[in-house]
């Protein structure tokens, strides 16, 4: 085995990627999060889950939020969706302050949350019905979204007849149907098996390429974040604060083959250091005694 090439600096961008980011930053800001904090009452005084989170997301940007468990990623996305209230700070979409949930911020949950009494088509129609859209026009719209996620032949099936991956596609179509400005995704592929997850990641990129939507994606899977994101927001726990924002230098269009590319590996290593600092420190000695008799020593 030859010695591997030294990895490039993870922030170094090729000219094409740098140009892309420059263009991206010229686009209007769709969503702005301004010094958002959230405290929860705890046994020994309030616990700060999020502190002073500020973030600007440009139009058609795909931003991933990543962090160790308990860093408040889910709290953050729930506040953005309007399902939870911040203790302080504010949220703007297209320059207007938000209050409460709204179809302009569509959400895809980890637990699918499809309406089990509605068929695939009726699920996708839900948001359009809430908006009071005329039914024939809305149905044509719903059909388009179902086609987009590749479920044409399952339009009249009930959720319990679908696999996990298919359910999550319905959830994506349902969230996109009312034309949200921002699509919020809370670990949407976390419950799927590895193979389906990989399929869904490419599928999401494909959808994003064809739809004018800005995506905020929460995950704890480092590869997933690098594969999908323009920028990765790395949170740290206790209190939940932004640790670092990484502009991913992996060129687009992305594919699973890039997992081995030097840019990918460099970013991956940096994320690893940020999220699992313990793994890179020398292992602490655990007092383990041998409990069973072993015939031969395999060490």
């Amino acid at each position: 085995m030859s010695t591997p090439d030294p990895l490039p600096e993870y922030l170094r961008q090729s000219p094409a990627v740098a140009a892309r980011f420059a263009k991206l930053k010229e686009r209007p800001v769709v969503m702005e999060i301004d010094r958002l904090s959230r405290q929860f009452p705890g046994e020994h005084g309030p616990v700060t889950a999020l502190r002073d989170i500020s973030l600007k997301i440009h139009r058609r940007e795909l931003v991933c939020v990543i962090g160790p468990s308990g860093c408040g990623k889910s709290t953050l996305i729930r506040i953005i969706a309007g399902l939870d209230e911040p203790t302080s700070g504010r949220m703007l979409v297209d320059g207007k302050e938000t209050s409460g949930p709204s179809p302009e911020r569509g959400m895809v949950f980890q637990g699918y949350t499809l309406f089990p009494w509605r068929t695939v088509k009726q699920n996708v129609l839900f948001g359009l019905e809430m908006a009071g859209r005329a039914s024939s026009e809305a149905e044509a719209d719903a059909r388009q979204w179902i086609d987009l996620v590749g479920l044409r032949n399952f339009a009249d099936n009930y959720p319990h007849q679908l696999s996990g991956g298919m359910k999550q596609r319905v959830a994506i179509a349902r969230a996109l149907a009312p034309n949200p400005r921002v699509l919020l995704m809370d670990e949407p592929f976390g419950a799927l098996d590895a193979q389906t997850r990989a399929q869904m990641q490419s599928h999401l990129l494909e959808i994003w390429r064809n739809v004018d939507v800005t995506i905020l994606f929460i995950t704890h899977d480092l590869d997933e974040a690098i594969l999908l994101a323009d920028r990765i927001i790395v949170l740290k726990a206790n209190p939940g604060e932004i640790q670092e924002v990484i502009e991913v230098s992996v060129p687009r269009p992305r594919s699973l083959e890039q997992l081995q590319s030097p840019e990918f590996q460099a970013t991956r290593r940096r994320l690893d250091e940020l999220i699992h600092p313990k793994l890179h420190a020398p292992a602490e000695h655990l007092p383990i005694t041998r409990l069973t008799q072993v015939g031969d020593d395999v060490e």
């Binding site: 309007g82 409460g100 949930p101 959400m107 839900f126 948001g127 349902r174 009312p178």
Partner: peptide, 29 residues
């Protein structure tokens, strides 16, 4: 009824009345 359904409906634009009549009611029927 699964609270997730209520939250999903809210992010799709359902208001109070719709949450009761279009989500809670059919889900528990």
């Amino acid at each position: 009824v699964d609270g997730g359904l209520i939250e999903a409906a809210q992010t799709l634009g359902a208001k109070r009345r719709q949450l009761v009549l279009r989500v809670l009611l059919p889900a528990s029927l």
